[in-house]
Design a protein around this nucleic acid. Structure first.
Lengths: 148, 148
DNA sequence: GGTGAAATCTACAGGAC
DNA sequence: GTCCTGTAGATTTCACC
């Protein structure tokens, strides 16, 4: 799919505020409401927009500790590990990466004791390296048009 | 703020689909539309909901390579580094963590050459350890109620 | 891609529990 | 304080050009 200037204007606006009305979006993009609606639907159907989500503050809902956990896992245990991780709601993301770690996990826990228990529940699958998140100088940002 | 069962139902629904109408949300939560609207506004004003965003597929918009970069930086250079990172749209997240790395960055680049250039632009601020994301077995999930 | 009317949704009253 | 019913106003969704 070709993403022109209007499409990028739409994407930037909707990434910043996912609940903007079509009327607002149309005004920002410089198109009529139906044209904006059409473009948005196309972007969704093409998979450019994967979905919409509310961003919830973990601390406000009782998750006082956030951590990144790098794991080195032998090949045979990987499927079992992933199955286990999928069952754990505290594991909010898992990516498979090159380098020393096989996986990098992002987890949320109520407190340090909870984090310790969580690490204890997965560290027989391989080595774990746990880093506690102290602050987030740059919180997840919208994607911008590549300079090309 | 106390988050009861209804609030969690609301949060789960709105995390999964941030564009659900109040009418839909009300049906799922089991409240009237105005009650749902009230609760949603409270959650936003209390900072429990930090915002709403469309999730865009990086590959679909020309960012073929995603990577995690751990950085070890001497204290005096940290502010300069952060200022630099904030100017780089490819750096879509930066967290300050405990452990060997000072910061963990998430970056998106068009290709490997672009990634190489990006690392070259920041590695005089300290050591970098770059891991390329190969796949995402668990993409960022909604937060669930802590089991308590 | 634009225009206009019908269907739907949101916001805001007022009142019950 | 939290919720529900009514309604007026705004928004979305179609038709069609």
């Amino acid at each position: 799919m070709e993403i022109d200037g209007k499409a990028w204007a739409l994407l930037q606006a909707i990434q910043q505020d996912g609940r903007l009305s079509l009327t607002e979006l149309a005004a920002r993009v410089g198109l009529s409401v139906p044209a904006t609606s059409e473009r948005l639907k196309r972007l969704e159907e093409a998979g450019v927009i994967r979905g919409y989500r509310a961003v919830v503050d973990p601390v406000a809902v009782g998750y006082g500790v956030q951590a990144l956990i790098g794991m080195t896992t032998p090949q045979p245990g990987k499927q079992k590990l992933l199955a286990k991780l999928r069952e754990m709601p505290e594991v909010i993301e898992c990516v498979h990466v090159t380098g020393q770690d096989s996986y990098m996990l992002r987890v949320v826990t109520r407190d340090i004791a909870h984090l310790e228990a969580l690490v204890g529940a997965i560290n027989h699958f391989g080595e774990t390296r746990t880093s506690i998140v102290m602050s987030t100088p740059i919180p997840l940002r919208p994607l911008s048009p590549p300079v090309k």
